[in-house]
Amino acid sequence: MSLLKWLFRRPEVNQQDQQRLQALPAAAMPGEQLLTQQRFVVVDLEATGLHTGRDKILSIGAVAVEHNGIAMGQQFERTLKRREVKVNEAVLIHQIAPSELATGIRPKTALLDFLEFVDDCPLVAFHAGFDQRLLQRELRDFFGYNFKHPFFDLAEVAPLLNPDHCMRQPRMDDWIDYFKLNVMQRHNAAADALATAELLLIFINQAQKQGILTLKQLDTALHNWRRRQGSSM
């Protein structure tokens, strides 16, 4: 196969998977949706490493936030079948046993299940760029699917709304401690998504108090914050 054909090759997708892909709604872009009414999907991915160009998703954890609360009946968790993945530091950190990866859900099915759970909603994560790029690559590799859903990064939202935090490059655990949240478990996709959802609710409340009421206003505020950060470097 020539390099050109390899670069533009289309993955094989069976008819059932193709039908599920075609039934997915288009992503809703940030507009006048009120933050307090919007359904967000908070997601956390556990992967074999931090290289979004080659590492693989091991598990997906997600929870819906809507009407200014965590929708406990709308939680999502999948461990993907990855027989080829060897036990390494990433697997040990995430506490995913090799037997779980060997008996997990077919990756294509897990990813389609997740897309259907997301529907047309924006996604939220901490250091969202990693989750976004990894999802985009895996969906492109498996289906040739262009994942366009907007992501909101709480690693940016947090300092935007709390400019006087006085922490140096705070991590998620730092913000959990800052707000004195009682988080029972970490480094597990479902548990991390739930902890991130608790932070999101705090930030939605703070945004309201600061006059940021809609998705568009939040998106604009983040854009301006990034520009200020860039100009101060």
Rank of each mutant, 00 (worst) to 15 (best):
D119M: 05
V91D: 00
Q38G: 02
A64N: 14
L58D: 08
L92H: 07
A71Q: 15
E77A: 10
V65G: 08
L50H: 13
G49E: 12
L34P: 01
E100C: 02
V42W: 07
K86D: 12
G49I: 12
V63I: 14
L58W: 10
L34R: 13
D44W: 04
I93N: 10
I70F: 12
I93G: 03
N68G: 11
G104Y: 03
A47F: 01
R83V: 12
P107S: 06
S59I: 00
H94T: 02
G69R: 14
R78Q: 15
G73D: 15
L115H: 14
D55T: 04
G73P: 14
A62P: 06
G61H: 10
E84S: 14
S59R: 02
P98R: 00
L80F: 06
A90M: 09
L112A: 06
D55A: 02
V43P: 08
K108V: 00
V63A: 11
P98L: 01
L58E: 13
I57Q: 05
P107C: 08
G73M: 02
L34C: 07
L101F: 07
E89D: 12
Q75W: 03
L112H: 10
R78P: 11
H51A: 08
D119W: 09
A71G: 09
E116R: 06
L101P: 04
Q95A: 10
I93F: 07
L50A: 10
G73R: 08
H51T: 05
